[in-house]
Design a protein around this nucleic acid. Sequence first.
DNA 1: GATGGGGGTTCCCATCATGGGAAGGTCAAG
DNA 2: CTTGACCTTCCCATGATGGGAACCCCCATC
Lengths: 155, 155
Amino acid sequence: MSAITIGEAARRTGVSAKMIRWYEATGLLPPATRSEAGYRHYDDSDLHTLRFVRRARDLGFSVEAIADLLALWRDRARPSAGVKAIAEQQIADLRRRITELEGMARTLEHLAESCCGDERPECPILDDLATEDHAPAPRRSTRGLSDRGRGRGMV
Amino acid sequence: MSAITIGEAARRTGVSAKMIRWYEATGLLPPATRSEAGYRHYDDSDLHTLRFVRRARDLGFSVEAIADLLALWRDRARPSAGVKAIAEQQIADLRRRITELEGMARTLEHLAESCCGDERPECPILDDLATEDHAPAPRRSTRGLSDRGRGRGMV
DNA sequence: GATGGGGGTTCCCATCATGGGAAGGTCAAG
DNA sequence: CTTGACCTTCCCATGATGGGAACCCCCATC
């Protein structure tokens, strides 16, 4: 009953059709059932899963982590400890990234404060950037979770 | 004088040789002078520029923004207002991203707190993810600046 | 003078999650 | 039967970065 197409599923769950296909292709989701013509069909249970994925993405979980969460969700006998561990890893990732961004923001705020920002050329911001003695800043190779949709272009 | 190779320039500035080449290829940096054999050579002025770029990256500026900053840096008569505007845009981007991450972290912290995390299957975290009525969360198309090196794999 | 090792050079590929778009098949309404 | 909305697959782009192959160059040592 109530077998809907991918476009309708996208509308109802907030996951784009493109992403639904991609999640299927990469194994996050099992292959959808198909109509005779090859159209994917989704039922209420599929929609539920899609909303689960969507919610997890909104909380910043990587697709890899979501795969783990889905497996735990499906296993009704799982210990909650596993889920909590994933969530805490995610919290740690988020906190680490926040700290990093916070450091950048604070430095820039200090610099911007001391720059009068008028037509004169004196500029403490450029002076800082051009200063030789900044800490070698250990090239951060410590990775975190995914951070969707970076790029330029503002609201 | 003191014309050094790309590897040495990388060591001295903290910008990898790969990235130096890439910055040149994409136009952020002008083409380096070459030896007869085709090796890139860098002088003190180039190193200074590379450190400028490095510092700006550490402050989270996108390569696009750095191109603007470099142009302003080279123009000794520029008004500081332009620089300040770029910095403030960057601060706004950073703050927006921090707010977004902070929201995710707080939600997860609440959920994790209420999850006992033992061998029992009851799990408020999964319950939340599986809940139907989460706000449609306007698919964020509001982009920010670059956030380097995402991926999995922790410290 | 040959050899070896540590550089350089270019080029391609992968990341991560996402969108854009082309080319072609399907379906329901007019 | 046409039209238009929708589906299918496939390729490409994003941003900044690393990995690696295949090849060239330079210097020092045997």
